[in-house]
């Protein structure tokens, strides 16, 4: 598995979590393990940082393949029976975050920026849902990725052509991604995120930096030794 994601800076995570109290830390054990973000030590350090932000970590849960919708549904039911939490922080690629966001009642935020998914395990999706842009903006877009959910990959709101929630380009087959985003943000009381300074992507961030590539190779080599 060639997944590469990088933890977001904690300053950014803090900004996303500032209105919440109790958090579920949900990590993907699938491809994530090959990179290390879902390793127990890493999760411990994320937990410590979260607590420094003044939030309680209700539970840390690792699931094999957050891209498996049924699995996610099962574990979220389980977590909701056991604990109270008002926000979920997901350690996975952008696909996992979007599956959790779809299945959860609580606001869901990414802990990582997804840089590349060279190959993919888990459930095959009908359509790519993460373009590994290296600068995850799911917090601003209600957990729906505009780069993949919108036919034009627009970042700053719908083009004028959407009618009744369908995409103007492929009305028969596609929902308008921005309609989905609008609905989500409306439900979350966060329509304020639809105005303000435009989002402009830094495409240089989708190139894996050398130090991450070599770190990944180290982790992979370590994995091979223990096999």
């Amino acid at each position: 598995m060639m997944l590469l994601s990088r933890l977001k800076p904690f300053d950014e995570i803090r900004d996303h979590l500032k209105d919440f109290e109790t958090l579920l830390l949900l990590a993907c054990n699938g491809c994530g393990e090959s990179f290390g973000n879902a390793e127990p030590e890493c999760l411990k350090s994320i937990e410590a940082e979260i607590e420094k932000m003044g939030l309680d970590v209700a539970d840390i849960l690792t699931v094999d393949f957050l891209c498996e919708q049924l699995l996610v549904r099962h574990w979220l039911d389980h977590a909701n029976c056991k604990e109270n939490f008002d926000v979920i922080l997901v350690v996975s690629c952008g696909i996992g975050v979007q599956v959790v966001s779809k299945e959860s009642q609580q606001p869901t935020y990414p802990a990582c920026d997804t840089i590349t998914i060279g190959a993919r395990l888990g459930q095959a999706w009908g359509r790519e849902s993460c373009k590994e842009c290296g600068q995850c903006i799911l917090p601003q877009t209600g957990g729906v990725c505009p780069l993949t959910a919108c036919s034009k990959g627009l970042l700053n709101g719908p083009c004028g052509g959407s009618q009744e929630g369908r995409c103007e380009v492929f009305p028969e087959t596609r929902e308008c991604g921005w309609h989905l985003i609008y609905k989500r943000l409306e439900a979350a009381g966060r329509k304020d995120l639809l105005v303000g300074r435009p989002l402009i992507k830094d495409f240089s961030l989708s190139e894996p930096p050398e130090e991450l590539v070599s770190l990944r190779n180290e982790i992979l080599a370590k994995g091979e030794e223990t096999l």
Partner: peptide, 21 residues
């Protein structure tokens, strides 16, 4: 702006965003 958009609110918010920009 597209006044025919439905629902209309996302277009209005986008209009505001365009003015700010």
């Amino acid at each position: 702006v597209n006044p025919n958009a439905s629902p209309v609110e996302p277009q209005l918010l986008k209009m505001e965003r365009k003015i700010e920009a």
